[in-house]
């Protein structure tokens, strides 16, 4: 399936209550390498209770500047959480349903992300 189909989908728990919308999908590069780079496995989805668009990820990193834009966007995405693939029962363009007793994780990323600015 195509990833952006899932982005923005409504996220429901097993009882059908709305938890939020899919803001992003997290991958881990830990699969057997194809040729050049490790395969990318879907670790889980980032769910935001307030808006569908992942606006720049301030809720997931420790960037606090430029003030006050960073603070506003961080607040806008407050309450975001990560659910792992194991807890997803159904994934589709309209809804994503989670399994009973799913676990919500911190959405935070360690450091600034995978790529540091390349020194050219």
């Amino acid at each position: 399936m195509i990833l952006t189909d899932v982005l923005g989908s409504r996220v429901l728990n097993s009882e059908g209550d709305l938890l939020g919308r899919v803001a992003d999908a997290r991958f881990v590069l830990d699969q057997p390498p194809g040729q050049l780079l490790a395969g990318a496995r879907l670790q889980g989805l980032i769910v935001s209770p307030h808006s569908a668009g992942s606006f720049m990820g301030y809720e997931r990193n420790d960037v606090t500047r430029p003030w006050p834009i960073a603070q506003i966007l961080k607040w806008w995405h407050r309450g975001s959480f990560l659910v792992l693939w194991e807890d997803i029962e159904i994934m589709g363009p309209e809804t994503v349903r989670l399994r009973e007793g799913f676990t919500a994780y911190h959405p935070g990323l360690q450091g600034a992300g995978p790529g540091q600015a390349p020194q050219r």
Binding site: R65, P66, A112, G113, Q116, A117
Partner: peptide, 21 residues
């Protein structure tokens, strides 16, 4: 531009100073 100039992922240690922001 202002947002990216503050993003360490792009800028490393060359992010904007407080005065510039």
């Amino acid at each position: 531009i202002l947002i990216v100039a503050n993003d360490p992922q792009y800028m490393g240690k060359h992010v904007n100073s407080r005065a510039v922001n």
